[in-house]
């Protein structure tokens, strides 16, 4: 199952490499990773989607290992939290003038936009959840996708909800989730 983590890290050179190297050496499988600045210039934010075949056990491993990195400030698992997740895709579809309307129609249904039109292709921009984007891709595929790029998923919890923090005590976090840690024994 895919888990989604939000990690706040110090905004310093090399931190992305540290995180990527950690995932590689601990044998975790990254499905997507998106990094960017935050409201605080000293902090960057990563959204990491990771395949966790052993469920919460793996999620604990990932969180605990991330904290081993000195530059990682906070890690939350938002997989089961009410949250907004978005991915953005640019999809170049090979269509001439005769089929543009069809693409337009699909884009409308998905609230996607045509952001570039050339003689024999258009670029569709779509934002949304993984599922929605996958759905759009499936429908565009028969028309001929020539190029595609995706940002990877970003996530934010709704309202005052926080994600789960499984590593109590670390970096001054409180111990509220400790009983969950104890219950994780398979």
């Amino acid at each position: 199952m895919n888990y989604t983590f939000i990690a706040l890290v110090e905004n310093r050179p090399g931190v992305l490499n540290r995180v990527a190297s950690l995932f590689r050496r601990r044998n975790f499988n990254i499905e997507s990773l998106a990094v960017g600045r935050t409201e605080d210039p000293e902090v960057s934010r990563m959204t990491v989607v990771v395949d966790c075949p052993n469920g919460d056990m793996d999620a604990h491993k990932i969180e605990a290992n991330l904290y081993k990195l000195v530059n990682v400030i906070d890690v939350q698992d938002v997989t089961r939290q009410p949250s907004v997740t978005r991915d953005l895709a640019l999809i170049k579809v090979k269509v001439g003038p005769e089929k543009r309307a069809e693409v337009n129609g699909l884009a409308d249904i998905f609230r996607a936009r045509i952001v570039d039109v050339a003689t024999d292709s258009v670029i569709v921009e779509i934002t949304g959840t993984e599922d929605k984007i996958e759905g759009m891709i499936e429908l565009l595929r028969p028309l001929g996708i020539v190029e595609m790029v995706r940002t990877g998923q970003v996530a934010m919890t709704r309202g005052v909800n926080d994600g789960v923090r499984r590593v109590p005590g670390v970096n001054g976090h409180r111990f509220e989730d400790v009983s969950e840690l104890a219950e994780m024994t398979p």
Binding site: M57, H60, K61, A64, N65, Y67, K68, V167, P168, G169, V170, L181, M184, T185, P186
Partner: peptide
Amino acid sequence: DPSEVHKNVA
């Protein structure tokens, strides 16, 4: 080290 907890033995 929290990453040692449950690492090899639950």
